[in-house]
Amino acid sequence: MKMTAMTDVTTDNQTPPTLTEEPAAAPVAEPIQMPQVPEQETELSGETVGNIHCENPFMIANDVNVYYGDNHAIKNVSLEIGKKEVIALIGPSGCGKSTFLRCLNRMNDTIETARVTGQITLDGKDIHRKEQDPVALRARVGMVFQKPNPFPKSIYDNVAYGPRIHGLAADRAELDDIVHTSLERAGLLKEVKDRLDEPGTSLSGGQQQRLCIARTIAVNPEVILMDEPCSALDPIATARIEDLMDELCEDYAIVIVTHSMQQAARVSRRVAYFHLGLLVEVDETDRIFTNPQHRLTEDYITGRIG
């Protein structure tokens, strides 16, 4: 059953036979690093190899399932996200990494057919508990989207939007301060400080994305979720955003979804590989890219799965 589904997403013809013929060849070699993996694991058993735990966990997802109507988009995913770390979610299109990301700030609530089960905690508290207001949660867990989406307002108002709705600034001077600091931290202040009144949409794509990051950090979140933040940008703008992530991870936990393995390697400390709604492997970035333990992970990072 699983194998049939596999073929659908596989671009390389050679992969499926390889998978069926050599189950669990690689993982057996290094059993020490993945104590929770059974020795005779099958290709898509639903068990995650590697280490889902981290030193200083801030968000913990436990056995999360997401259904879109009848479609089971995420299956039994457990993952810890540490304070002050960048964790990258990689995997082929449609593997559920964006869906998982959207669970972390309950953005899936806005989709009528979506249903989430399992437990996700933020700083030890369940984000699905009754008293938790999803609006307040999203202020603590900010999000940057794939396509830069500045509001149809001035640059200033774009950044001031969050502080205004959450009442973070007592007066205009304080708001000015927040706006300037956020733009500064997003590395945009120099370029825009003389034209804060111009519409946010008048900026270039890379600037718009940094504006969106400034807008997110203006609310002072604890976690920043980034959904392929550089996929619409050129390499120069991408490099700037990556530098920015390096700086931001000193204060925030950052979860980034990316299609670029190089980007994941450059910016993240840990990498989680998703496949068909399953979390296949999680580990330190170096280990994932130099010595992946799961066959699927290896196939993906070597370019054998699309």
Binding site: M107, G142, M143, F151, P152, Y161, G162, I165, C212, T216
Partner: peptide, 17 residues
């Protein structure tokens, strides 16, 4: 665009905001 809607919700806006 939905992106605009998501952007606002992602910053912790309520529906009416």
């Amino acid at each position: 665009p939905t992106a605009m809607r998501d952007g606002a919700l992602g910053l912790g806006s309520t529906r009416s905001e």
